[in-house]
Amino acid sequence: MTDAGATPLLVVEDLVAGYGDEVVLEGISLVVEPGEILVVLGSTGSGKSTLLRCIVGLLAPRSGRVLIRGRDINAASDREREGILRDVGLSFQEAALLNSLTTAENVALPIIEHWDVDEATALMLARMRLARVGLAGAGEKMPSELSGGMRKRAGIARAMALEPALLLLDEPSAGLDPITARAIDELILSFKARGNIGIVAVTHELGSINTIADRAIMFAAGRIIAAGTLAQVRDAPDERVQAFFQRRLLPGNQQRTLAEELEWRDGGRSDRRTLGAEE
């Protein structure tokens, strides 16, 4: 956590946002400090991804403010916004790699644009970033040649290309096999271990939540219905929170508890201990 009185990394104040006539986020407020991982929970369509779009200025809020290191992204000039965005890395749910560029060129793109380096050096740096996420040797591949997990990791490498102070991850492990999902969780934790980075991860994967969250907020219908440590959120009396943590709808209408989810994720090796601590 930061020193008292220091400017928080991210402040969202009373945010209201939506598309057309539809209000998707209503009265959202949150703070993220350097060195912590905030997990945003909620079911599909609850407004989690919209929150990320507002934070990076892709969607202008109807009211409220988004302050990144004290600077309001929506009130900034184009040049100021560029400076603000250099402090932010966003990994999209589907990675959103530029399909006309190789994986390394994708990661090198922001480096070439924002740092005073030549293209060859930027590509070298990009390969190092890719190696960091376990994609050494995949730099020359086109995005269409990568698997879903590799694309996500490449997206994270691109988001980390400029060593941002704030990393935003949209469903980083959704749709991945348990081993790859766990590898991505460990990657996120390794970023956190480096120190000053603040991470906001949007997810509804129970295994990831339990592994990476320092704090959590839970969305339902565009509002925050629970916030605090993971334990505090899990104990929130709201029945939607309870439903989220106790029951998880799976294909074939099978339902898993959190404990079963963790068993499923890695055979319960490490998480039994964590779960036991929580219980």
Binding site: V56, L90, A96, L98, N99, E113
Partner: peptide, 17 residues
């Protein structure tokens, strides 16, 4: 258009490109 629906344009904007 394809870049728009695959969020590549959004990705560029978030990289301040």
């Amino acid at each position: 258009g394809t870049m728009v629906i695959s969020e590549e344009i959004d990705a560029m904007r978030t990289m301040a490109l």
